[in-house]
Design a protein around this nucleic acid. Structure first.
Lengths: 238, 238
DNA sequence: TCAAAAGTGTTAAGTTTACACCCATGA
DNA sequence: TCATGGGTGTAAACTTAACACTTTTGA
């Protein structure tokens, strides 16, 4: 990868580095889920001391030779069984005393999944639980702060990227989409104005299929076309 | 701080933690400067192998017992001599092979300073140099990626916070302010429209003083009133 | 027949963009 | 007297926000 190895031998730590302390590096995942109505957060019971049994974000430690992003994917898959989950880094949390067990730098990620996808794969071995986003119990260490920062970033991403569609099944009604944005942004969105805007977006396409689970009359199912979305974003830059 | 120490003794690492590897944790600072006309990046010569002598961001290692943010402030002060610099975290960079010397997780910050403030305090011991933001030479490891992410975040902050004012002296002309935003956003901004908007902001106040360094006629000097800014932002939330 | 969700347009207010000339001054 | 940067207003295009009733159908 790097041609300029100079005089460093494999496995040997250069003198300048060796003078400095090393620390545990963890990853913590803020896992958001949507069930068509409300936004949820997935929390687990902490399995070891200190604070064993307290509510916490799903997390783990970074392994030698493992990319940070890969560590986040791995711990996430471990809990949810899901492999291609949308994740994005929230940032690093590194107060010296944030973890009362040892010095741990935590890099937080947030993940977006459809609650239905999770139910099917849920192992339960971590004592995981979905809680409504406005009913989060006290969490261990600085995890509440992590969740709050993650929400902020998600709100931003929902407006400026296609991230939000990761919370929905492949086909969805406009009412569900509307409710999803209301849940993410935390405020009501006018139905008519919302539908008008959606109608202008070429990447949200009617499928012709009807969903009758929520109404007798039935609602049109729509789908998100990522190819068209990416193309229309490309053209913004020109 | 944390009441729930359970059975952890001071200085002892709990068994669950001890099983995991520890890593070097570094901080790197993307230091942006403005001289009234162009936007600059401060880079230094790397002082130790590997890649000794290559251009790099100013950085350092996090110490035991030191908060991540404090480590960033410290390395920054070391280079610039400036104490109360605006800094903000960009994120964690943690590819397994990003640093060819050892496994190092880097947490990047960006800092905004007035180039004039720096000149006065510049020690030169790091072989530091201002480069125009569009003329950055190749940087070591993933530092270019770090700079690009920092710029993106700064662009965002310039629109949604008072961060940009950290790049200006206490008093500034509207032409300088206009040029600053053009430099940050990377595109021209209409002079008349810009001044119209500024006139509506109560927190950018004329001082009555005139600056004649850039024109014979002289331009009104303005100042940023943080108290008013914070108050007007508070009221957005209500 | 009625409850519950789906669907549908118009108008006013506000925001954004484009655009060109006169002013004051020191060299 | 002229070159340089400082300063000013208006109109069109576009975006956002507010607002209420009809449709369909299974229970």
């Amino acid at each position: 990868m790097d041609k300029n190895k100079t005089s460093i031998k494999r496995g040997e730590i250069p003198a300048h580095y060796a003078r400095h302390p090393q620390m545990f590096v963890g990853v913590d995942s803020v896992i958001f889920g949507f069930n068509g109505k409300d936004l949820y957060l997935l929390i687990v019971k902490r399995a070891y001391p200190p604070r064993k049994g307290a509510w916490t974000l799903m997390g783990g430690f970074v392994r030698n030779g493992e990319d940070l992003d890969a560590a986040a994917q791995r711990t996430l898959e471990d809990l949810t069984g899901l492999e291609n989950v949308y994740i994005k880094q929230v940032g690093a949390f590194g107060k010296a005393d944030r973890d009362s067990g040892a010095r741990v730098i935590s890099v937080a990620y947030y993940a977006l999944i459809d609650v239905k996808d999770y139910d099917a794969n849920f192992s339960g071995k971590y004592g995981a639980r979905w809680v409504k986003i406005d009913e989060i119990p006290p969490l261990v260490f600085d995890h509440r702060e992590i969740v709050d920062r993650a929400r902020e970033i998600m709100r931003n991403d929902a407006r400026n990227s296609d991230a939000a569609f990761n919370l929905l099944p492949k086909m969805f009604t406009l009412t569900k989409l509307n409710k999803l944005f209301e849940a993410i942004l935390g405020k009501p969105i006018d139905k008519r104005n919302f539908r008008k805007k959606v109608a202008e977006l070429k990447y949200i396409k009617p499928t012709g299929k009807i969903d009758q689970t929520d109404s007798k009359r039935g609602a049109m199912l729509y789908t998100f076309d990522k190819k068209i979305y990416d193309r229309s974003n490309m053209s913004k830059l020109l």
